[in-house]
Design a binder for these strands. Sequence first.
DNA 1: CTAATGCATGAGGAAAATTCATGCAGACCT
DNA 2: AGGTCTGCATGAATTTTCCTCATGCATTAG
Lengths: 301, 301
Amino acid sequence: MQTLPSGLPPLQTLRAFTAVARLKSFTMAADDLAVTQTAVSHQIAQLEDWIGGRLFVRDRRGVELTPLGQGLLPDVVGALENLEQALGRARRSLGSPKLRISTSPEFATQWLTPRLTGFCDAHPEVDVSVTVQYRRALVVNDDIDVAIWLSGGMLERGAERLTADEEFAVCAPELARELPRREGMRTAPLLRYEGARYTVLDWRRWHGQIYGDSDKHDFDGGPSYRTFPEMLDACRSGAGFALVRSSLVTDDLAAGRLVRCFTESVVSDLQYQLVIMPSRREEAQIRAFRHWILEQAKPAA
Amino acid sequence: MQTLPSGLPPLQTLRAFTAVARLKSFTMAADDLAVTQTAVSHQIAQLEDWIGGRLFVRDRRGVELTPLGQGLLPDVVGALENLEQALGRARRSLGSPKLRISTSPEFATQWLTPRLTGFCDAHPEVDVSVTVQYRRALVVNDDIDVAIWLSGGMLERGAERLTADEEFAVCAPELARELPRREGMRTAPLLRYEGARYTVLDWRRWHGQIYGDSDKHDFDGGPSYRTFPEMLDACRSGAGFALVRSSLVTDDLAAGRLVRCFTESVVSDLQYQLVIMPSRREEAQIRAFRHWILEQAKPAA
DNA sequence: CTAATGCATGAGGAAAATTCATGCAGACCT
DNA sequence: AGGTCTGCATGAATTTTCCTCATGCATTAG
């Protein structure tokens, strides 16, 4: 008969086998492999069942290889080492993969940076760098692999939408308690930042879109900050109201550092988009990043 | 940085790699490995991600190895072949495992044989044979690996109980409908079989244990059969009542071929026990059989 | 005799692999 | 050209596998 259930047993059982043979102990091998003793016991039992005979003699103070195990060990160790060398060589031949990201200050600070550690943990071999630019580089140049920028429609060929933003006003929680009504808007300053023209977070326009009465009010004169993060920092301290897009304050809202002042909001016609250099699209670290960031963006979509 | 997420990628991805390289097609490789094309696609993608570069160029009419893949293939094929040879040698050195079971005719017919196909399917490499004996061999001899016999207490060192039998009376369903009352017992014959003395399925004793009035009735004179299976066959045909132990009729009761005539039953002081030759206890096929049969016996326990 | 060490066992849950359903692109065929 | 077919990719859902937790048993040391 001698039917083979399969050509090879699970790889993990072989690694357990070599570890136990080397350390002469299930418990120490388990420690070496960073699993529990239970797992090693199961794996050795599984390999022994697969082969059809005992590989170790279990007795007091550790374990010893049977003749069967002694015959098997050198070949298994050798084959696994060959595999590791060959695969390691193939991997190293590609060099350390790099991932260079370009984005705006507000997106980097409010969205990307807090989440990026997750990607770095999952892909420690990738050398990640983030470049912050105040104005979008019209062409994704050779120093950049992927770019994330706010734009309307699909400007770049192959760009992918990351967010589905609304625009609304936020303030510090204390300010919301003191000035709960719409009229409060005129008793506390309206914060603004210099990028506002480009990113179209403009109080007058926003108010007009909702109430149609933008002419009646004065929207000028509040403090102005150089960047969105600076403005938001002031806002958190209670300096006034800030007009934001939703994807930039999800963390602040969740943590209670900021609250929405009014229920009114405008669906933004600008969205953050992921732009990948077409020639780099197939590289593994870039495919991984794309997969990761689309996943991250999902709940906000 | 170049931190390695793990020493080796999953073994299946390597087998997929060699299969695709050999057959120059994901679909054919999938067929070769007896999985779906989807699985191969995922596995190759996983290996490519692990390595960090493409191994195949996908285009019209099949796939081709990249230089990276070409460099990797010989080493991987070689290492896997070495592993397979070493493990195959170890396995063959043990010879084709045999499992010789000795038991009684009634247990073989009524319990073991119908279930044994399950074990044979799960362990096609094991050469199973069942030896039926009318009297128990007092010593499990060299031609036998395991024995299953009815006995009281733990007669053999290391014997394990398989059943928790009760003794009760059964008959064909028609007979039960016609003679539903206890008095019916005297209008239809009480079947017996020659082994009854040894296995203690004796009408007089059974009746006495329940009612204490065994002297008042006549329990002799029914038809006698040479073996339990023969008697049970007659019983199924409506020939009369049979006194049985529960584990031997579970299938017949479940299928409705037999029914219990009375609710009265006696807990048997004899149980089927599994006896394993101590010197063979560690052999894989015997451990597998022990595990299997204890599992099978559980619901009846 | 009791405690401590080391492996085994089985159930339960977490993680991984596979499949299902579907999409997309190029090649071949009228 | 347009349709159809072949071949690989993708994402969700499922199945399977693997690991861990809790516990048991045997041996040895104190």
